[in-house]
Amino acid sequence: MNTPACSPASLELSLPSELGYEVIARDAVAAFACRLGIPAERIEDLKTVLCEACINAMEHGNSLDPGLRVQIFCRIEAERLVVEVLDQGVSRYTAAPTPLSIGEKVAGQGSARGMGLLLISQLCDEAGFVTRSGPGNCFRFAFHRQPGHCSSGDR
């Protein structure tokens, strides 16, 4: 199902900072993307990216305090699906300047963790932190809509 240009296609959700809840957000955003006619394969990418962004917000932004919320804003903007993931910013975080290669990780030269942002950058079309005046981190990523690849919207 295609959404007319005038329709304010948007979705907002908020969830507790507890690992596991990112999956519920994932399924909400996937259902939203499905309605927008985003192809199934790209929805799989979106699901992984959303989970990784939520986990970062929960773990790093909100220090896994379940009382703190992660907010997600999704909207359609100029043929892109834009998603923002906001935390309440107990601590600021950024990507490691030079992530370890898999060879270095396998050789035990550092933590095997820290691949979330790497996965995100490879799976979506745009990604990065957005500067905010208030506290908290805002991570924004986007998927381009590919015209002509619209699925029926119903699963």
Binding site: C51, I55, K105, V106, A112, R113, G114, M115, G116
Partner: peptide, 10 residues
């Protein structure tokens, strides 16, 4: 997820 992949790298 990436944490799971980290386990597999281990």
């Amino acid at each position: 997820n990436s944490a799971g992949i980290a386990i597999l790298i281990g």
